[in-house]
Design a protein around this nucleic acid. Structure first.
Length: 223
DNA sequence: GGCCAGGTGTAAA
DNA sequence: TTTACACATGGC
C-alpha cells in the first residue's frame, strides 16, 4: 500500500527529530541536580504535571530528605506530606521507599549499572513500569534506551507512523530500529517530544505553525 | 467546572 | 488477554 509522496506518513523518525531539534534546540535533560534526584523525579512525575513534581522535590530538598537513607529513616506519613503536591502521594511515598531500599542495597548508580539485567531489576519493583525504568536507565545511568511516553504514541500515531493503540514495546522498537544506538540521541529526542507537547500542543491545540506539520499531542478526546 | 498531566497495578470481563 | 478503574494534586 503506497501513500501519496510527501505525506506526513512518509517521514522517518530521523526526519521528525530534525524538525523538533530545529524548532526547539538542545533541551539539556533531565532537569535534576543529581542522578538520585532524577530517579525520584521519574517516580513522582507518573501521570502528573512536572510543575507539581517541582513543588514536591523542593519540599524534599528543604527537609533534607532528597536522599535515599533519609526517606527510609523518616516516617512514611511525613514523606507523604512532603510529596503531596505531586499527587497520588500515598502510593508514591510507598514506591519511593521501595526504590530507595533497592537503590542502597544494589549499590547506587554504579551497582544498578552493573547488574546482569538492570531493566528487569527495575521492572521487578512495584511502582516501576516501563517508562519509569527506561527513564532511569537513560537519564540516570546513561544507557541507550528510548523512552516512550503518552506524547510519543499520540504524536507518532497521528503522523501515521505508528498504528492506533500501539503498545510500549512496539513503539520503542520503532525508534530502536531506525535510530543509532546512542544515549545522547535518545536523551535529546525524548526531551524534544516533551518540549513540543508542552510548548506547542497543550490545552488549546493551535497547529497552524506546528514544526511537525499540524500533528500535536493534545488528547482531543476522553480517557 | 472540566480537562489534562513526562504511568502503574489490580480486578473484572 | 484485554479493558476498566483507582490513585490525587494543581494549572488553565
Amino acid at each position: 500500500m503506497s501513500r501519496p509522496s510527501g505525506s506526513p506518513a512518509d517521514r522517518t523518525a530521523t526526519d521528525i527529530y530534525r524538525l523538533l531539534f530545529a524548532a526547539y534546540g538542545p533541551q539539556h535533560w533531565w532537569p535534576a541536580q543529581s542522578a538520585f534526584e532524577m530517579m525520584v523525579g521519574a517516580i513522582l512525575t507518573q501521570n502528573t504535571a512536572w510543575t507539581n513534581v517541582e513543588k514536591a522535590i523542593a519540599n524534599l530538598r528543604a527537609a533534607a530528605a532528597l536522599d535515599a537513607q533519609a526517606m527510609l529513616t523518616m516516617d512514611e506519613a511525613g514523606l507523604r506530606e512532603l510529596i503531596r503536591p505531586s499527587g497520588f502521594f500515598n502510593q508514591k511515598a510507598a514506591r519511593l521507599r521501595l526504590f530507595c531500599a533497592y537503590y542502597l542495597q544494589t549499590g547506587r548508580e554504579a551497582g544498578m549499572r552493573t547488574l546482569p539485567d538492570p531493566r528487569a531489576s527495575l521492572l521487578a519493583l512495584n511502582g516501576i513500569g516501563p517508562e519509569t525504568a527506561d527513564s532511569i536507565l537513560l537519564y540516570a545511568l546513561g544507557m541507550p534506551v528510548f523512552v516512550v511516553d503518552a506524547y510519543t504514541r499520540r504524536i507518532f500515531t497521528r503522523l501515521g507512523l505508528l498504528p492506533e493503540g500501539v503498545n510500549y514495546a512496539d513503539t520503542q522498537d520503532f525508534f530502536h530500529a531506525q535510530l543509532a544506538n546512542s544515549a545522547p540521541l535518545f536523551n535529546e529526542y525524548h526531551a524534544l517530544i516533551v518540549q513540543h507537547a508542552k510548548q506547542h500542543c497543550r490545552v488549546k491545540p493551535d497547529c497552524s505553525r506546528c514544526p511537525v506539520s499540524g500533528f500535536c499531542s493534545y488528547r482531543q478526546g476522553k480517557r
